[in-house]
Design a protein around this nucleic acid. Structure first.
Lengths: 203, 203
DNA sequence: ACCTGAACACCGTTCAAGT
DNA sequence: ACCTGAACACCGTTCAAGT
């Protein structure tokens, strides 16, 4: 009497990503994903060794549904285009960027992204340490800005609370406080991205 | 019979930072900090409302012991010098960067750092959106690279495990694998930092 | 005023049992 | 082969009690 499994690796990741989109990355746990699948927590251990592997599988699945670097553009454009798309994709999965930046060296699909970025650099005549330095800088920058965006997700209620409580201590932040609103982070992301890519002096 | 407290806010933060340096940021909990102080977990609730506030207080204390932006340098040099010092300080507190990048808008001492960076920009003739964009970009970049450094702390054992398991899937990463070693991250951090600051075209 | 200890709702995980 | 349920060691937190 061998029943077929109620769920496979793909539905496990789907369930996990559903939890992320609805409640954010910190809500991902063995129990919450099991609930999403409608099984008991222990059933997940058929496919993963522990909670860490569960999280890695879900974070990796997010890379598969995200944008891949394009090979039909010159390196600076390929970097910028991927960066904008990846940023958009990451902020749809609140809190994910924080996990990915710490664990990308263990995540196959995120390593695919790095591989493709290096490949574009290679096709463009850039190689070795310079290529790795450039790709790593853009990769880290994108993940970092997604985290900042996540940080501003709490709404203006408790945002910059210390500054609103004590404006005199932070005169420049206070004077520029509209610039720290969440709506401006996309623009600042693009300004910094343009600066970074330009500064890398590719071609 | 009013005893004086066994510990104050300063010793609470000291104990917390001791835990971070010894075991890393994820080890910080109400119970681990209470153990470090030699009191029961509930004793901490005299000074903090909950575990979130405890973590914010400890993360904030780390900014106080770290470098402050210098006002005696031109803006590009001030940014670079602060970035290098902050990066060094962050990697001594494994895992801290990840928390700070998500919570800096609620951390008074980290907001002081942003305030000082904006102040240097102002003294240098840069102001408004351009100043905020530049400061935020450098801030996010430094925190991101510290996280990457933290990510490589596990030793080469499980580093890039998917690449070592399947080299043919990642030809460019494989060919450049020495560049992904932890020892190279400091150099790549500096390359990206120089590019970012140069690209911001300050002055 | 300050601290402790028991208790409860979570979490990850082991293990024995069920089909 | 696949899944469940009880149980245990954690964590944050409430509450009543102790000095």
């Amino acid at each position: 009497m061998t029943r077929r499994p109620q769920f496979d690796a793909a539905s496990l990741c789907e369930a996990g990503l559903a939890v992320v989109r609805r409640e954010g990355w910190p809500a991902v746990s063995v129990r919450s994903v099991a609930d999403e699948l409608g099984v008991s927590p222990m059933a997940l251990y058929r496919l993963v060794a522990d909670a860490g592997e569960l999280r890695r599988r879900i974070a990796d699945a997010a890379a598969v549904t995200g944008p891949q670097p394009r090979h039909d553009l010159p390196l600076p454009d390929a970097l910028r285009t991927w960066a904008v798309g990846a940023h958009r994709h990451l902020v749809r999965h609140r809190g994910l960027a924080s996990f990915v930046l710490v664990h990308w060296t263990e995540l196959p699909a995120w390593l695919d992204v790095v591989e493709h970025l290096l490949s574009v650099a290679h096709d463009d005549g850039l190689d070795g340490p310079a290529a790795v330095a450039s790709v790593n800088a853009v990769f880290a920058y994108v993940l970092a800005r997604a985290q900042v965006h996540d940080a501003l997700a709490g709404g203006p209620r408790r945002q910059l609370a210390p500054v609103r409580a004590e404006p005199g201590r932070y005169p420049h932040v206070w004077a520029n406080r509209p610039e720290f609103a969440r709506a401006r982070t996309e623009r600042h992301f693009l300004v910094g991205l343009a600066a970074l890519v330009a500064g890398l002096s590719l071609r």
